[in-house]
Write a protein that binds this DNA or RNA. Structure first.
Lengths: 148, 148
DNA sequence: CCGTACATGAGACAACGTCTCAGTAACGAA
DNA sequence: TTCGTTACTGAGACGTTGTCTCATGTACGG
């Protein structure tokens, strides 16, 4: 067996979850999880494919989905709707997306349910989930250029 | 000149805005705007293309974007991120998306800025905009099946 | 009525993701 | 340890959404 100890924590947790849930632990999955773990900035699926060239593209997508389902990876939709991925820390959270440098910060759910209550009452909707993305400029980018 | 009086209100407003802003009023734009106006449910760009077969696909996309920029049309990202379009009434609003029937209801911005204040303070972000989509089941779908 | 510049159409191209299908390998059982 | 089942994988086709180019067309001001 390879040097199991060199796995990033995220990759390690992922492997554990695979075992617990009866999925197979493959070298491919280790490689993908390891590549994801090494990321700090949001990345595209294609970038991840480039990082693990020995893994097929379809398989990278399949495992991205698996990582998402297990809560290890989250999908962020930029302002134009284009998707990025990012290792996730919190079960449910939202994103502050810097439109200047592309950085994404998480923030945990402020009490949105409170806000939605009147809306829900009026519409008769049964709310199952939501997505909130906030766009702007991060502190670093504000300091760097056009400091208005 | 075609029967100008038969234009839907949205199409009519669009034509006016074109004139005001110095864009050209073309039969193509009238056709696209008219097709959009006739829609009640969210639709895909390709569906719109099918509805105006004499208009090139690229041109349909260009005018969809123009309609969006002018606030006559809004883009909704479904749960999986796939885009739909819908004539829009309100300048700034959010969406209640029924995951069962696909219906989309608008709701105007509850005071999100209040909620975001602590987040903004902590992160140093300068907020420029946001997107909020709420997913669930509409009243009709709740009544129709699996009424829990 | 003419000229200019904006708008259009056709089709190539790009990004993102899914599907199929044959081959491979993980892992429980013997 | 070996074996068999079945999940997993790779390659590549395919589908969707959208942009770009570039030659042609046309709205509209002069």
């Amino acid at each position: 067996m390879a040097t199991t100890s060199s796995l990033h924590p995220l990759a390690d947790s992922f492997i554990n979850r695979l075992e617990v849930e009866g999925h197979r632990v493959t070298s491919t999955r280790r490689a993908v999880a390891q590549a994801v773990s090494g990321r700090t900035a949001p990345f595209t699926a294609e970038e991840l494919c480039d990082e693990v060239p020995r893994v097929g593209r379809a398989t990278v997508y399949r495992n991205i989905k698996l990582l998402q389902d297990m809560g290890f990876l989250c999908r962020v939709l930029l302002e134009d709707g284009s998707p990025r991925y990012q290792p996730s820390q919190h079960a449910h959270h939202h994103h502050l997306v810097c439109v200047s440098c592309g950085e994404v910060q998480d923030f945990v759910d402020c009490d949105l349910s409170e806000l939605l209550r009147p809306v829900v009452r009026e519409s008769g909707f049964e709310v199952a989930g939501h997505r909130l993305e906030v766009f702007g400029r991060c502190a670093r980018c504000r300091g760097r250029a056009s400091p208005n």
